[in-house]
Design a protein around this nucleic acid. Structure first.
Length: 383
RNA sequence: GCGCAGGUGGCAGAGUGGUCAAUUGCAUCGCGCUGUAGACGCGACGCCCUUUGGGCUCCGGGGGUUCGAAUCCCUCCCUGCGCA
């Protein structure tokens, strides 16, 4: 993997770069479509291409619990398996340490309910939970107790082994993603673990055609983030991920991203893990983020929320019942070129499968188009 | 015309003397989804009032029994099935 910066903004931390991997090169900043189980839900590779997607992120945990990583290895790697020609990444399973652990105990998403204002009851409840009832986090690794009763164990070594079997262009080191409700004391402890795991991931890596990016943790505390950046950037990673909880307001999240990015080495790519509402994208790019993934465009699409300039529409609303305009006039996506809101609303209400595809096509196109525009504006010195 | 079964909120369908403004599903409406346990979740859904609260109206129509009826009785209307 190679990364080179081709344009650097004088107005912000934004930059345009070229990321080159065995499966092609792309220009950054770039949105990464989430394809957890080796598919971007509802879409085929041809759809992804038409929508302008360049990178897809699959997930170690999900492909491991179904033992699909073995099949993928036999198939000659993720690209062959899912018939995708572009770049691929795999998340390490570190996020599931949160989403299937304290995320459930705390009854909270990584951000969701925090932005509108802190929920005191949840915070009080979270403080009383010292150990997750769903997973066991040890220095050695993590034991997941699945909803179906199966046990899954993930260690840094195991995560790398699985990620090498999957064979994506870019792997992430196994980390512990912490809850936004975790105490500083706990986050510090978890961060130390993530650092030790990072070293073990590097040692465990055997293939040299795959890149490995390290993940910065430390929650919402500057001193912890600083320490994490120092530790992770001193290890021989090919790039970095910004992970974990990023404070309880958006302003704080932006501050933290800036804090971290101004301290990471300039010449390596930075991936903001899991963030990507359309309204936030211009900001995170200005703060020096090169790649970022987010389930929102595809999940919201499936749930009937479609992106338009300046916001989003809920296609279920009765006002669209006889609305024969496209989702957004002037949109160049396949969906808007061919179908109108009335039809999409009909498909949604009837839970017709075509809806999920058409909606996902639109939202991904919207995001990719947005990011492409931002790249041009960085090149033109506007950002 | 006779026999049997039944008429409950937009629909389907529970309840069968008080804890019923009435289970549940669908529909409707609103809200939410940020490294995907998510083609999903939460809420509202008779009317009115600012509430975890209060008031009014309510289970085909009318009348009755009872302290109290969606629930029991009488009567009328309507629907389905069977027989003429």
């Amino acid at each position: 993997m190679q990364f080179s910066i081709t344009h650097k903004s004088e107005k912000s931390l934004a930059r345009v770069g070229v990321l080159e991997t065995p499966h092609g090169k792309i220009e950054t900043p770039c949105f990464v479509a989430v394809g957890t189980k080796a598919t971007v839900k509802a879409l085929g590779p041809d759809d992804l291409e038409r929508v302008g997607t360049q990178i897809v992120l699959a997930n170690t945990y999900h492909l491991y619990t179904s033992k699909t990583h073995e099949v993928i290895k036999q198939a000659g790697g993720l690209n062959n398996f899912m018939r995708w020609q572009g770049i691929t990444m795999t998340d390490s399973g570190g996020f599931q340490v949160f989403s299937l652990g304290f995320g459930k105990d705390h009854e909270i998403g990584r951000y969701s309910t925090l932005f509108p204002g802190e929920d005191l009851q949840k915070m009080v409840k979270a403080e009383s939970i010292k150990e997750s009832q769903y997973i066991k986090i040890l220095d050695e690794g993590v034991v997941f107790r699945l909803p179906d009763g199966k046990r899954t164990v993930l260690t840094p070594e195991k995560s790398i082994e699985i990620q090498e079997a999957i064979g994506a262009d870019i792997m992430f080191s196994f980390d512990e993603c912490t809850s936004p409700l975790a105490s500083k004391e706990y986050v510090k402890e978890a961060m130390g673990r993530t650092h030790r795991w990072a070293e073990r991931c590097i040692k465990a890596k055997t293939r040299n055609d795959q890149a490995l990016w390290g993940i910065v943790q430390g929650g919402e505390w500057n001193d912890l983030r600083e320490e994490s950046v120092r530790t992770i950037s001193n290890l021989p990673f090919d790039g970095f991920g910004l992970g974990g909880a990023m404070g309880k307001t958006k302003e704080r999240m932006f501050e933290l991203i800036e804090f971290i990015n101004t301290r990471l080495p300039d010449n390596k790519p930075r991936h903001l893990l899991g963030i990507g509402y359309p309204e936030d994208i211009p900001e995170i790019v200005k703060l020096g983020v090169d790649t970022f993934d987010c389930v929102a465009p595809t999940r919201e699409a499936r749930n009937g929320t479609l992106y338009v300039k300046g916001g989003r529409i809920s296609i279920q609303k009765s006002e669209y019942r006889q609305d024969f305009l496209p989702i957004e006039e002037g949109c160049g996506c396949y969906t808007c070129q061919n179908f109108n809101r009335a039809y999409l609303r009909h498909l949604y209400k009837e839970k017709e499968l075509l809806f999920y595809r058409l909606a996902s096509i639109h939202n991904l196109y919207f995001i990719n188009n947005l990011v492409a525009g931002i790249r041009e504006r960085i090149k033109n010195g506007e950002i």
